[in-house]
Write a protein that binds this DNA or RNA. Structure first.
Lengths: 192, 192
DNA sequence: TTGAGTCGGAACCGATCGGTACCGTTTTGG
DNA sequence: CCAAAACGGTACCGATCGGTTCCGACTCAA
């Protein structure tokens, strides 16, 4: 058999939804771009939302695999996360994080797509916590929460500035955080 | 005259676009919610996009005025920015930053709405720089760039967690940043 | 070779999209 | 008091939305 229709649909969804937005891309566009017939679409997916969820699950897995590999390639230091980030910002058609974008576009927090998008971030946080714990940092959970804030801040800023600099700024602050967390205990709550 | 049609339209746009998204809300909804007739809509605005731009301009002005006032009420310290932020996160129907959301929803960076949304962030950065300079911090421009990263990171995180905690985490890191910037010179570029 | 499964194409559905034109009414300033 | 302006309601426009249905062609294993 030739390339599976389902696979081509998912690929088109990944490309178009990321580049132009979920609501901005209709089924028609997906069919034209993938070369799949309308009937075949609904043979593989219950609805457009179903494809959105599938695409987000694929994004989650791919992105986390990519990050883990990129960090491992750099020696496994938690700070390498931000070097990997800088690399991703340099990609020409970078348009932020598909998960953040989906949560913004699909406002209803109870919808399947929104839930899957939110779950992606929780998985990334779990990975960061693991990474920080492995590196011997105290309070890896509290640090991971701060890392994800820096990460998402860098992503949003990079989307706006079209630059890799935000990743470096975030790394700088993350390094500061690690240095200060090393000796003393890091609180889970309020700052001064 | 009764409440102006234009004003009611803008108010409905602010509410609905922010709560449900720009693409998710059609002209029909705006008319129903505002009680304005279809013809009146197009007497006041060239198009839906025109209303979007108007709404974003209003958001920009209102948000910056609110921030400046909230900071001033707290004594004018740059760190007060994050206390104000925490307060805004607590609002029941908080749905992130209308400017970030608009840039995500309207992918085309050359469109008027996207441009206005991006301009909002630049204005906030300018305010932050001014605030940091007034407080006597060295390199206020470099600090403002890091503050906006923390700010936007906190906003995105708060949207996901539905909590005010991200504002506190961001404040903590901002405080760390100010402490480290005080004695030594802060680089504009790369971290270790 | 035959039959089941997968495929792409196209006609069609009701609903909604953004936008226009015309209506009669209300409000308002001179 | 009257004319001009602003208003809300409605019918209508072509285009597109997500989704259903049927059809003929192709592939592949039995």
């Amino acid at each position: 058999m030739p390339t599976q229709a389902r696979e081509r649909l998912v690929r088109a969804a990944e490309k178009l939804f990321y580049a132009e937005g979920i609501r901005a891309v209709g089924v028609e566009r997906l069919l034209a771009d993938s070369g799949v017939g309308r009937a075949s679409f609904y043979r593989h997916f219950d609805s457009k939302d179903d494809l959105v969820v599938t695409m987000l699950r694929g994004y989650d897995e791919r992105w986390r695999n990519w990050l883990a590999q990129a960090v491992a390639d750099r020696g496994g230091s938690p700070l390498a996360v931000f070097d990997a980030l800088a690399e991703s910002f340099a990609i020409e058609d970078f348009r932020g994080c598909a998960s953040i974008n989906a949560m913004v576009e699909i406002a209803d927090a109870t919808s399947p797509a929104h839930r899957v998008a939110a779950e992606h971030k929780r998985s990334v946080i779990a990975y960061l916590e693991e990474l920080l714990a492995s590196a011997g940092h105290p309070e890896p959970a509290a640090l991971a929460e701060r890392f994800i804030l820096l990460l998402d801040g860098a992503i949003v800023t990079a989307l706006r500035e079209r630059s890799t600099e935000p990743a470096r700024r975030a790394k700088e602050m993350a390094a500061m955080l690690l240095a200060s967390a090393q000796p003393a205990k890091l609180g889970t709550g309020r700052a001064g």
